[in-house]
């Protein structure tokens, strides 16, 4: 689940020098991202207050594979429930209920279904927070408090970049419509 865009997040203990622009509108940001890609600029990340459609494609992010996790956990849940009930009622302690066969498959369906959903949902949510590096008590450095409000942020990492390269990024940001351009070490 570790896509290339997230490699930066995994290098948590190194401090990062970041140059970022704040945009007021998601459409302007989206065009800036397209342009940065066309100019072969190495985007560190893009931060937005809400999901912006088309952004993942613009950034070249690969499709999320969370739904595969959901399927695998769901399958585990279904098998767990069905095989456990089968074992209990055919091997461990067979009991006749209402004259039905020991292995009464239709009666196992509701619990099999519920556990499929339960395992799948828990598995996906846990996988989601794990791969995103989010958890209770985690503090991830943020660039600006307004990113969760009304600013759209395009960030470049500038560790080891020459002044010339930084100036180039700055002029790119202002040309693409960034309202504010700041540098920060996180």
């Amino acid at each position: 689940m570790f896509e290339s865009a997230n490699i930066h997040h995994t290098m948590a203990n190194q401090s990062k020098e970041v140059l970022y622009g704040l945009y007021d509108d998601e459409q302007v940001l989206l065009q800036a991202v397209h342009k940065a890609k066309a100019d072969h600029l190495d985007i560190m990340d893009v931060y937005t207050p809400f999901p912006v459609h088309g952004l993942d494609e613009a950034m070249g992010l690969s499709e999320s594979r969370l739904h595969q996790v959901g399927f695998i956990f769901g399958a585990i849940g279904a098998l767990t429930a069905f095989l456990f009930m089968t074992w209990v009622f055919t091997r461990d302690w067979p009991i006749i209920f209402g004259g039905k066969p020991y292995w009464s498959i239709p009666a196992f369906i509701p619990i099999t279904f519920e556990l499929t959903v339960l395992f799948s949902a828990i598995g996906m949510v846990v996988a989601y927070y794990t791969v995103c590096g989010l958890a209770p008590g985690v503090t991830n450095p943020t660039l600006d408090d307004r990113i969760t409000d009304d600013k759209f942020c395009l960030a470049f990492q500038t560790n080891g970049a020459s002044q010339q390269e930084i100036d180039k990024l700055k002029s790119f940001l202002s040309a693409s419509g960034a309202e504010e351009i700041n540098a920060k070490i996180i």
Binding site: E3, A5, N6, H9, D45, V46, Y47, T48, P49, F50, P51, V52, L55, D56, M59, L61, S64, L66, Y128, Y129, V131, C132, G133, L134, A135, P136, G137, V138, T139, N140, T142, I147, T148, C153
Partner: peptide
């Protein structure tokens, strides 16, 4: 949970 609003997080969120 240390939410940042990163694009990849939003993509997975959706």
């Amino acid at each position: 949970f240390g939410w940042t609003g990163a694009a990849k997080h939003w993509q997975r969120f959706e």
